[in-house]
Design a protein around this nucleic acid. Structure first.
Lengths: 352, 352
DNA sequence: CTTCAGAATGTGTACGTTCACATGAACGAC
DNA sequence: GTCGTTCATGTGAACGTACACATTCTGAAG
């Protein structure tokens, strides 16, 4: 690595920190005895290059540790090789898993992932974040923010890059998702098939599209079976909240099963019921959603709906890269979730 | 939003897709009747601007939806307002939480976060990823990859930007971490204080710095108490593995307590023991590590060591931003973990 | 009215790369 | 030997911004 000193007049500043400039394409050209354009050709491995020239350039590049400046590249090509991701809750298992899969797939496709999140879900902050991403000349956008309002912002800003929204059954276009409704119906159907007639639903936060879809799936299935549709309880995804709700529910005796909108809340419920002297699934059956890796080890092992978050991430990136390479969008795509039956569900022990 | 059409000769191509160029600083200048430099001043809110001029420029900016091109900015300033994050396992609760906190703090400080991960931990791929990040003119680097080999790469590449490594007690310099050793000692001490004399340790993967530190803390504490130091069992962080180990351990009767290197493995252990007819904590006491949000709802609620991943992320970013603004690095910084006693630990029921 | 300082604004250039086009070399056909 | 043709390489822009410096404007002091 031969650092090139900056071109400040020598001897002026004494204590100035040693300013080194990273080598650029012209440095490489000079050392290799070719023009900068030839170096550029090597970098973009164009054809029509004598092998020995290419070889010489590559050697110099390696020797001085030259790396093309992405900013300059992005400026002239308006291609940044960067994919923007807008997320709201990276810490959630699902989002985090998808995000990781996206990043991995992006790396393999030669893209970098820039992530930004929205703290509050007010329109202004969403808009601001989207604009910020756009000003980075991102080539494509993935939205993992499940709030409805995001879509308004996207529409209004006339995003001009390929776009995928994850986990939204809502957006008719450019959406890729696990079929939440189908999953919810699967879970509910399972309880009904076991003979449960009084089923509660502990839903996710109202402004989450997934939560809404799961709730709808639940209600549809219950109504189709001519059962009583109790009003869903609105939760916040956390085990703590599930626990809280569980304690409240100990006072009620009008149900024999609960479908929780995610595994963590199901865990909290089971905790509360156990504390209250009830046994799952003998007294109450519980179904979760997501099948996080720990669900199989809960007590009792949780019956739940598996959705493949990683696959979701990979597919979304594949779609975008496809679109960037000219292929046409294939329309709304859905991944079918799968019911995983474990030990938290059983026949109802009593008839109401 | 007034899109500016590109400067291609009109009437040449018929079916060409409508190419629009994003408005630039000169477009704003023209419409506002000022020079581009004045617009630049507005953008960087320099002083010495007549309020009405500034107002006029801002209005135009808002009207045509102008956003400064970050690539151009990065090119000329060699400041990208981007912070690079190298990670290995985003999907883990700890990394994901820290990452999210970093992103949030970065956003507040006006930075964007670009994440890249290493799939394999071989030297070449680490080096490649680091170089890639550097070529993006990132201003600072955060490493959440806990593999030892990463540090060699960092040293060799002579990273010139402020750097923080997360979760490594190893790197004497530029490291910010929860004091894993102290946490492990806390957990072990708790078991010893309860009267346990035969304690096993289910460790994390060998090449994880945190795993190593926890193991060391465990051994130190056991040795200090003059107890038998059983060789640790090497795990992979997953509940599945904990479950597997738990089943194996059912054959052994030479221990009364286990310190698991994370909560998930502890969960798997408890699952296996319950299946084997043992009761936690009556027959075996178990301590975990991390205090993930679900740990309080496991059965039994898990005694564990809490580490504040979000705080870690926030602090690391604060340190970097501080350094970018000229303040000197404060040296190796550690966050003290905290023992959370729940119901998975009790007095030993028998003497060995 | 002149002068001058300071505030406000404008002009030239550089950042590092790629694109479009220009040039030069090599080589065969006539 | 001349001419075209193809291959290999070189030259002049341009991308959109910020920095250094130049210029103009403003208003008060002399």
């Amino acid at each position: 690595m031969v650092p090139v000193r900056s071109l400040t007049k020598p001897g002026t500043a004494v204590m100035e920190p040693e300013k080194v400039r990273a080598p650029n394409i012209r440095d490489v050209a000079r050392l290799a005895g070719v023009s900068y354009q030839t170096v550029s050709r090597v970098l973009n491995n164009s054809e029509a290059l004598r092998p020995e020239t290419k070889q010489r350039v590559l050697e110099v590049i390696d020797q001085i540790g030259y790396r093309p400046n992405q900013a300059a590249r992005a400026l002239v090509t308006s291609r940044s090789r960067t994919i923007g991701v807008l997320t709201s809750q990276t810490a959630h298992y699902g989002s985090a898993t998808s995000l990781h899969a996206i990043e991995e797939a992006a790396r393999k496709a030669g893209y970098l992932v820039s992530t930004t999140s929205i703290a509050t879900s007010d329109y202004e902050s969403i808009r601001d974040r989207l604009e910020y991403l756009m000003s980075q000349s991102i080539e494509a956008l993935i939205v993992i923010a499940p709030q409805v309002r995001v879509f308004d912002a996207i529409r209004e800003l006339e995003i001009r890059v390929p776009l995928v929204t994850l986990g939204s059954t809502l957006g008719d276009d450019h959406a890729l998702s696990v079929d939440q409704m189908a999953g919810a119906r699967l879970a509910t159907r399972h309880l009904i098939d076991l003979g449960h007639q009084h089923i509660l639903h502990l839903a996710g936060p109202q402004d989450w599209i997934e939560a809404e879809a799961r709730m709808k799936g639940f209600i549809d299935e219950v109504v189709d079976a001519d059962l009583i549709a109790y009003p869903p309880i609105l939760g916040d995804w956390t085990a703590d909240f599930g626990h809280y709700v569980g304690r409240e529910l100990l006072r009620r005796t009008d149900f024999t099963a609960i479908f929780a909108a995610n595994d963590q809340m199901a865990l909290g419920l089971m905790h509360a019921f156990r504390e209250g002297g009830l046994e799952v699934p003998r007294d109450i059956s519980i179904v979760g959603f997501d099948d996080i890796p720990e669900a199989a080890h809960y007590w009792p092992p949780l019956t739940t709906v598996r959705q493949d978050f990683a696959e979701l991430g990979r597919r979304s990136l594949a779609l975008l890269v496809g679109e960037l390479n000219g292929s046409r969008w294939m329309g709304h795509d859905q991944i079918t979730p799968e019911l995983v039956i474990r030990e938290s569900t059983a026949l109802p022990s009593r008839n109401l």
